[in-house]
Design a protein around this nucleic acid. Structure first.
Length: 239
DNA sequence: GCGACAG
DNA sequence: ATCTTGTCGC
């Protein structure tokens, strides 16, 4: 995977075509008790930073988190996002003391030109069930999105239902949900709704965002109480 | 050739 | 993604 550095777009696309065949889009889920959200940010264009937070599905309270940094593999190219973000995502996931049963990723799952968005790729690389939660569309077309929270309309590409345009909150832009790996579209929508409260984004990604940009305090104060050795910066071992 | 284009 | 203040609306 570190061999991804220096990969040409053409080679990356070929790898996607080969790997896409291994993605599972039917439910192959364990008993889901812990869900996690991951977010990737950049510090300049040199360094990529990933933050993962594990929440109890029960009450959506955090039980663990981790942060990791690593060199940015390649620039952002639509369709090749996973090659830029997966390395640092895997690094952060490996640092978790408590592993999640399901992972929600920013971006698309199979709602991708070659059916291998960052969520699907992360699922294949880790073996974890994953869901793609995109804030905007990459590909596919869809009709009007229902107004009520929890309602959705299918996202279609070449006659194939690749995702759902979901209204997680009335009056605001919908989310683009798609199976990442080891989960069906119906279940993906179900779990995204279970992780969503009063905001547009699910709590998993809201926590990951908050931890990634350690500006606010609500996030950090809660995290200090977790069974980690030290505070936010403390979970970042020698990078 | 002309747009579209996750984060 | 990132650069950034105030501001419109429920």
């Amino acid at each position: 995977m570190e061999q991804w550095a220096g990969l040409t777009p053409k080679q990356a696309i070929e790898l996607q075509r080969e790997a896409a065949g291994q993605v599972i889009t039917v439910d192959d889920l364990p008993d889901i008790r812990l869900v996690a959200g991951v977010d990737v940010g950049f510090e300049g264009r040199e360094t990529a930073r990933a933050a993962v937070v594990v929440l109890r599905l029960d009450d959506l309270e955090p039980v663990d988190y981790a942060i990791a940094r690593s060199p940015t593999p390649m620039p952002y190219i639509p369709g090749l996002l996973s090659f830029r973000e997966c390395p640092v995502i895997l690094k952060a996931l490996s640092r978790l003391i408590i592993k999640p049963d399901l992972l929600l990723c920013d971006g698309q799952g199979i709602a991708h030109p070659r059916r291998l968005g960052v969520a699907s790729h992360t699922g294949l690389l880790t073996g974890l069930p994953t869901i793609g939660v995109g804030k905007s569309r990459l590909i596919g077309s869809h009709g009007p999105v229902p107004e009520n929270r929890g309602e959705w309309t299918p996202l279609v590409d070449q006659g194939e239902e690749i995702g759902a345009v979901l209204r997680t909150r009335a009056g605001v832009k919908p989310l683009f949900i798609s199976p990442g790996h080891r989960i069906s579209l119906a279940s993906a929508v179900h779990y995204v709704m279970r992780c969503t409260t009063r905001y547009r984004l699910p709590e998993t990604t809201r926590w990951a965002d908050g931890v990634a940009s350690a500006r606010s305090h609500r996030w950090l104060d809660q995290l200090k109480k977790l069974p980690r050795a030290s505070g936010p910066e403390g979970c970042v071992s020698a990078d």
